[in-house]
Design a protein around this nucleic acid. Structure first.
Lengths: 186, 186
DNA sequence: TTCGCTTTTTGACATTTATCAAAAACCTCC
DNA sequence: GGAGGTTTTTGATAAATGTCAAAAAGCGAA
């Protein structure tokens, strides 16, 4: 399973832990456009993406604003809701047919308790996601819309084929019209 | 020690762990305006603030842009540099006379190895900092400069007495002049 | 291949915030 | 209690991006 391979890059996964993960990780297949988590609903699952593309978005004044994209070998969840058990402020949808691995919050907490080494995995993954978020934060503060767009296509060129320009524009913190104009002048 | 009290809110701290933390945690006192970490220098320490106010800032086109403030009972470090061991993109300075607890990266890694329960503490603290960063990220995307300012003074009114308006303005993602105008019209 | 829907682009104009310069207010320390 | 520095405010103008509306392009299904 891709998830196990992914985790074993962080620390050695014992056979016992492997079995435990396998027993709680559900492989699920979802068609494009499926809503995984609805806005205002508690998100009690962590998803690992084996295949496909998922996005989280907010509603701001009735408009969908993309908060993140997640693709192969990445985790997706409404982090805030998952950790705090509060209703999710964001909606999560599959932008493509997806193959995911689903782990529930309670199963994850059990893993943390029974296999102390998973705490290390959790810490390191969280640290890495923190750094990615900080990078985006700085990007939005210091770079112009054009720079952010160029940065995105250089780092993740395939996203342009996989998501609509409107979804990408709001991810970059601009409107679709502005993104269209940026593209026109390049 | 305040740090131990703080950590014991997360999990029970055994006597052995308490001793281990005490043996690696250095209490330091710094006068106002001390630079704790210089831009481009690796940051190999984590600081816990017992007393005082600290800020991290970037340079953007020669100007200081506040990235964060940290005060009593909070951690401060150049997170990116601390985790990746790359040079710090930010400078960290004491805005007031400070009493800090300093733990080095290697000592922290030793704690993680010797006391598995510290992994749990590290994970939970990182999760909480992630959520705080996400909240700020959304704040900057969805709220106007005025709303961000009002939000800040309602959540942390004393900051206005402790940091200059210029430092606060760049923290909010606006210029000092804009913040001044916002205050004038309230 | 064309109809109908969705996505993308274009145009005109509005809004927010930045920039640069200078004045005013505020400290602090001799 | 002023001199000199720093911080904050004010003014005029510019730049970046948003808003609303409509046209154009793209695309899947009959």
């Amino acid at each position: 399973m891709i998830l196990l391979q992914h985790l074993s890059k962080i620390i050695f996964i014992s056979k016992a832990l492997e079995d435990a993960i396998n027993s709680v990780a559900k492989e699920i297949t979802l068609p494009k456009n499926t809503i995984l988590v609805n806005h205002k609903e508690r998100c009690r699952n962590l998803f690992f993406i084996q295949k496909g593309l998922v996005r989280g978005y907010y509603y701001d004044e009735g408009k969908e604003i993309t908060n993140w994209f997640a693709q192969e070998e990445e985790f997706a969840t409404s982090f805030y809701s998952f950790i705090t058990n509060e209703p999710s402020p964001e909606t999560i949808e599959a932008l493509e047919d997806c193959q995911l691995i689903q782990i529930s919050y309670t199963d994850l907490q059990d893993l943390y308790k029974k296999f102390q080494e998973t705490e290390r995995i959790g810490r390191i993954i969280t640290e890495n996601y923190y750094i990615k978020l900080e990078e985006r934060f700085l990007n939005i503060r210091f770079r112009s819309a054009k720079e952010r767009y160029q940065n995105l296509i250089s780092k993740n060129p395939s996203l342009l084929q996989r998501a609509s320009l409107g979804q990408i524009a709001t991810y970059l913190g601009i409107t679709q019209e502005t993104l269209s104009r940026i593209r026109a002048e390049l």
